[in-house]
Simulated assay, not measured.
Amino acid sequence: MYDLGDIVEMKKAHPCGVNRWEITRMGADIKIKCTGCGHVVMMPRREFNKKLKKVLESKADQA
């Protein structure tokens, strides 16, 4: 699945043109940060799971 620090791709791209997000907080809500412009978005886990397309880079793979 996904974990803190992973880089994920969402179904819709951010208006800045980048579709890579870093997970910065996990809990009932998930906070993600755009890797292009640095914009931070916080959304409920259920909504995040709907909008998630795939995990691009996993911190577990790099460790």
Rank of each mutant, 00 (worst) to 15 (best):
M26T: 12
G27E: 13
G36I: 08
S58H: 05
C37R: 08
L56V: 13
G36D: 09
R25H: 13
A28H: 13
D61I: 14
M42G: 14
M43R: 14
C37E: 06
H39K: 15
G38C: 09
V40N: 12
E9D: 05
A63V: 15
G5K: 07
L52A: 03
K59R: 13
K12T: 09
H14A: 12
G27S: 10
G27Y: 11
H39P: 02
H14M: 09
I23A: 08
G27D: 12
I30P: 07
I7H: 03
K33M: 11
G38W: 10
M42W: 09
L52R: 04
V40M: 14
V40W: 12
I23W: 12
K53A: 10
E9Y: 04
K54P: 01
V8S: 02
G17R: 00
A28M: 12
H39E: 15
G17T: 00
A63L: 15
K50V: 08
A60F: 09
R46P: 02
I30T: 06
K59P: 02
I32Q: 02
I23S: 07
K12D: 13
N49Q: 12
K33W: 02
G5Y: 10
D29F: 12
A63D: 15
E9F: 03
I32N: 02
V55R: 05
E9V: 13
P15M: 03
K51I: 04
G38A: 10
L56S: 00
K59T: 14
L52W: 03
S58E: 05
V18M: 00
K59H: 03
D6E: 09
M42S: 15
C34Q: 05
M43C: 11
M10V: 06
C34F: 01
N19A: 01
G27R: 11
T24W: 07
G17E: 00
N19K: 04
E22F: 01
W21E: 08
E47F: 07
M26G: 09
G17W: 00
P15E: 08
K12V: 07
K54V: 02
K59L: 07
R45D: 13
C16S: 01
K33N: 02
V41M: 13
P15H: 02
M26I: 14
K50D: 06
C34T: 03
D61S: 15
V40F: 13
V8C: 03
T35Y: 02
G36M: 09
R46M: 10
T35S: 09
V18Y: 00
Q62G: 12
T35F: 00
V40D: 13
K50W: 05
S58P: 00
K33F: 01
C16R: 00
M10H: 05
G5T: 12
M42D: 11
L52N: 03
R25D: 11
K50C: 04
A60P: 01
V41T: 15
I23M: 10
K54Q: 09
H39R: 14
Q62W: 14
K59Y: 01
G17V: 00
D61W: 14
E47N: 10
R25C: 07
M10P: 05
A13H: 06
I7M: 03
V8A: 03
I7R: 04
I32T: 04
G5Q: 09
A60R: 15
A13Q: 10
K54Y: 01
K54A: 04
C37N: 06
G5N: 12
K54N: 04
V41F: 13
P15Q: 03
M10K: 11
N49L: 10
K51M: 11
